[in-house]
């Protein structure tokens, strides 16, 4: 993390993108595990008489992981900045309702605008509570999510609003074999990667997450960086909410919390090798983490394993992965 500070501008930008799969990258183990798991899944599907790389299965994996993937990209930004966002789950629910209700009355574009405005506002409040009021990110975002939950419980009993056919296509359409939702995820992930690796804000996010005091002494306005990271994270959650609204055809007050997007996105981020304390990791690892969880799910489905057993294995995978990462860091 101190390295980022000393050399804020990469000297050889041409190969820097490859660093994400390089030997010292924290994202490497997750891709190796993903590869191993995919081979395992492929063999398993073959012996079961299925085809892992069939279009139905791969498209299904991508479609199911797109929403979590988008949230996790945003979560990566705040975690890298040394913060954390527990409010994304209820924000997703809120945003799905805002989207569906605005779309029913005013059309698609105003709805997208409203969604982005609401999520940016929530992100801004998160960031300001953390930086100005000096509330620990865990408590601040937990508090905000309780507030959003209260508003949702108070105003909604069930699904509300409706999403026009044209917008529902975002959830299910494909361009060639690739689902639109996966393209949206890829675009957001690429934008976040570009932000982190190519822009001053990206370097500052690493610097602040690595050591806020050192970053401050080096002239980084740390508060602004944290607020910006939270706004971007909330915008990602907002887009995931739009995607889920498109898929459901309506807004639902429990879509975010039922999906467990808060803790699951954090799990995907750390599974991707990003340090929970901040300053170390990246978007590439997170994408790998989300895909790993999705392939794992697909294996469970093929084996027809009870959904409760999935939770057990997910918990074990999470703890085991983090134990291995800690070992690697110690060894170095």
């Amino acid at each position: 993390m101190t390295q980022e500070l000393r050399t804020p501008v990469p000297k050889t930008p041409t190969w820097r993108g490859l660093r994400d799969v390089g030997a010292d990258s924290p994202a490497r183990p997750v891709y190796l595990s993903l590869l191993a798991l995919t081979v395992f899944a492929w063999i398993l599907f073959l012996t079961d008489g299925g085809q892992f790389f069939s279009q139905v299965n791969t498209v299904g994996i991508l479609q199911r992981s797109a929403a979590l993937g988008i949230v996790a990209v945003g979560q990566t930004l705040v975690i890298l900045a040394g913060s954390l966002d527990l409010s994304v789950a209820f924000l997703i629910s809120l945003v799905s309702l805002v989207a569906a209700e605005t779309m029913a009355d005013y059309g698609v574009l105003p709805a997208i605008g409203a969604v982005l405005a609401v999520s940016a506002l929530v992100g801004l409040v998160n960031g300001l509570v953390i930086t100005r009021l000096k509330v620990h990110a865990f408590i601040a975002t937990l508090g905000i999510s309780l507030i959003i939950k209260g508003v949702l419980d108070h105003r909604y009993d069930g699904p509300a609003g409706s999403v026009p056919e044209s917008f529902q296509r975002l959830g299910y359409d494909r361009i060639g074999p690739v689902p639109v939702s996966a393209l949206l995820w890829a675009a957001i992930a690429f934008a976040a990667w570009f932000l982190l690796r190519r822009t001053p804000l990206g370097y500052r996010i690493y610097a602040v997450g690595g050591d806020p005091e050192v970053a401050r002494l080096s002239g980084v306005r740390t508060d602004r960086v944290v607020v910006a990271a939270h706004v971007l994270c909330a915008l990602c959650a907002g887009m995931a909410g739009l995607l889920l609204a498109a898929r459901l055809g309506a807004g639902a007050p429990t879509v975010g919390s039922d999906g467990g997007y808060d803790l699951e996105s954090i799990a995907a981020v750390v599974l991707g090798g990003t340090a929970l304390a901040g300053g170390r990791g990246g978007v590439a690892g997170t994408v790998g983490g989300v895909l790993l969880l999705a392939v794992l799910d697909s294996v469970f489905n093929q084996l027809e394993i009870n959904s409760f057993a999935k939770d057990v294995v997910r918990g074990l995978v999470l703890v085991a992965a983090l134990a291995i990462y800690a070992r690697r860091r110690l060894a170095r």
Binding site: V270, L276, L318, V319, L322, A323, A326, R327
Partner: peptide, 8 residues
């Protein structure tokens, strides 16, 4: 195992 307690 040095896993962050949040994750453990």
């Amino acid at each position: 195992l040095r896993v962050p307690s949040f994750i453990t």
